[in-house]
Amino acid sequence: MNDLDPIVAGLNDNQNLNSKEVLELFVDLFTERGPEVVSQEIFTDYLKIKKLEGDEYSELSSEILSQLSTIDIGFYSDYIRNIEKNGIRFVPFYAPEYPDRLWKIADPPLCLYVDGDVNLLGDGVAIVGTRSATEHRLEFVREIARALVEMDKTVVSGLANGVDAAAHRGALEADGDTIAVLPGEVQKIVPASNRELGEQIQKKGALVSETSSKVGIHRGRFVERNRITSGISTAVIIGASGKTGGTIHQANFAMEQEKPRFLYESEIDDGQSPDKLYKKGFRGFHTLDELRKLLNSDFTPLNPDSTTPTKLDDY
C-alpha cells in the first residue's frame, strides 16, 4: 500500500467525486510522479496549485481539498491492510488490474474492492433483469449464462433475486466464471438470502464493490452500482424487465455507455419485454442461436486509437 491508496479510498466513498475529470486531474499529476511516490503532502500541494490556475480544474481541486480534510486516513489505511490480509484486493484506478472499460464511462469509481479473481474484470457480459421474472424467463436466463460460458465469457450480474441470481447459477452450473457487483461493502453479501450463492461466486469468480465499510447501503446504491455492472462488461443482456424499476436504470446506463444491448423476447406474452427498451437501442432475440449471432456481430473491442486514457502503465 502506498500513501495515495487511503486518500483515493476516502475520496471514492464520496460518490460525488466519481467522474472522468477527477481521473484526469490525477493523470496530470502522474505525468510528473508515479502513484507510488505521491504522498498526501505532494497531492495537497498539487491541488493548491491547480486551484490557483483558474482553469477547468480549479473548482474541482478546491472541492477535493475540502474533502481531504475530512478523510480519516488512519481508518482507510487499516481497512485496506485488513481486507488484503483476508485476500481481498484493493484496486485503485492506477492499478494494472483496474478495468480499461471503466475509464470509458462518465462516472468511473476511483477504486474497486475485489474478493476473488481480479483477472476476470476485463471480458464479461452482463445479464440483468427484474427480481419478479417469470419462471420461464429464469430458466432461459440460466441457459443464456451457460451459453456464454461455452463462449468463454464471464457472466456479470448483481446477485439480486430473480434474473441476477439465475444468471450467476447458470454460469456456476456450467463450471464458468461469474462476477457479482454488490451495492455495499464487498464483505457483506446482499441480499442475505443469496449468501451461499455469493460464497460460491467468490470461489469461482469474484465479488466486486466500489465502497468501503464506511458507506452504508441505501436505495440509491442499488442504482449506482449498475453503472459498474454494465461498465465492466462488453455487452448487456436483459432477461426480463418491468416497465419501471432497477432494470430500466441499468438499461439507461448501457445506452449511455454505448454497450451492445440485447433483450430476451419470450414467446409467452408476459409483459416483461417492455417497448421502451427498444427505444433505448436494445435488440430482441428469441433463441440462443439468435443471441450468439448478435453477440458475434456486435462485440467490439475498445478503440485502440481512442484519446481517452485507459491505463497508467507508463507512469
Rank of each mutant, 00 (worst) to 15 (best):
T178M: 05
Q187R: 15
I228E: 01
N194V: 14
E210T: 09
E173P: 02
E185G: 15
E185I: 08
A171I: 07
T211R: 15
F222W: 03
I189G: 11
E196G: 00
R225G: 02
A180E: 06
T229V: 15
E196C: 04
I179R: 10
S212L: 09
P191M: 01
N194C: 14
G205N: 02
E199I: 11
E210V: 08
L182P: 07
K204G: 09
P191F: 05
R221V: 00
V190Q: 05
K214S: 14
H218K: 11
P191W: 03
E173V: 03
E210R: 06
E199K: 15
E210N: 07
L182V: 10
G205E: 01
T229Q: 12
P191C: 03
V223A: 13
E196W: 03
G176A: 12
V208Q: 08
V186M: 08
V208T: 09
Q200Y: 02
L197P: 11
I217Y: 04
K188S: 13
D177Q: 15
A174C: 05
P183A: 03
G176S: 08
P183N: 04
T211A: 12
T229E: 14
I228D: 01
E210W: 01
S212N: 09
T211K: 13
L182Y: 05
L182T: 07
K203H: 13
E196P: 00
R225L: 03
E224Q: 13
Q202E: 15
K204F: 12
G184I: 03
A192T: 13
P191A: 06
Q200H: 11
E224W: 06
I189K: 10
G184C: 03
V208R: 08
K203N: 15
T211E: 00
R219Y: 06
R195N: 12
R227V: 08
R195V: 10
L207Q: 09
P183I: 01
G205S: 10
G216K: 11
D177T: 08
S213I: 12
K204P: 01
N194R: 12
G176H: 05
K203A: 14
I217C: 11
I179V: 14
V208H: 11
D177G: 09
G176L: 12
V223L: 14
T178Y: 01
V208N: 11
N194P: 12
A192G: 03
S230M: 02
G205L: 07
H218W: 10
T178S: 14
I179T: 04
E224P: 00
L182A: 09
T178C: 15
E224D: 14
K188E: 09
G220Q: 11
V186T: 06
E199Q: 12
F222T: 06
K188L: 07
E224Y: 01
I189W: 03
P191Q: 04
T211M: 06
G176Q: 04
I201W: 04
K204D: 12
T229R: 04
F222K: 02
V208I: 14
P191R: 04
K214P: 00
V223C: 03
E224S: 08
G176R: 02
V223M: 12
S230I: 04
V186G: 07
N194Q: 13
P183G: 04
I228Y: 01
V223I: 15
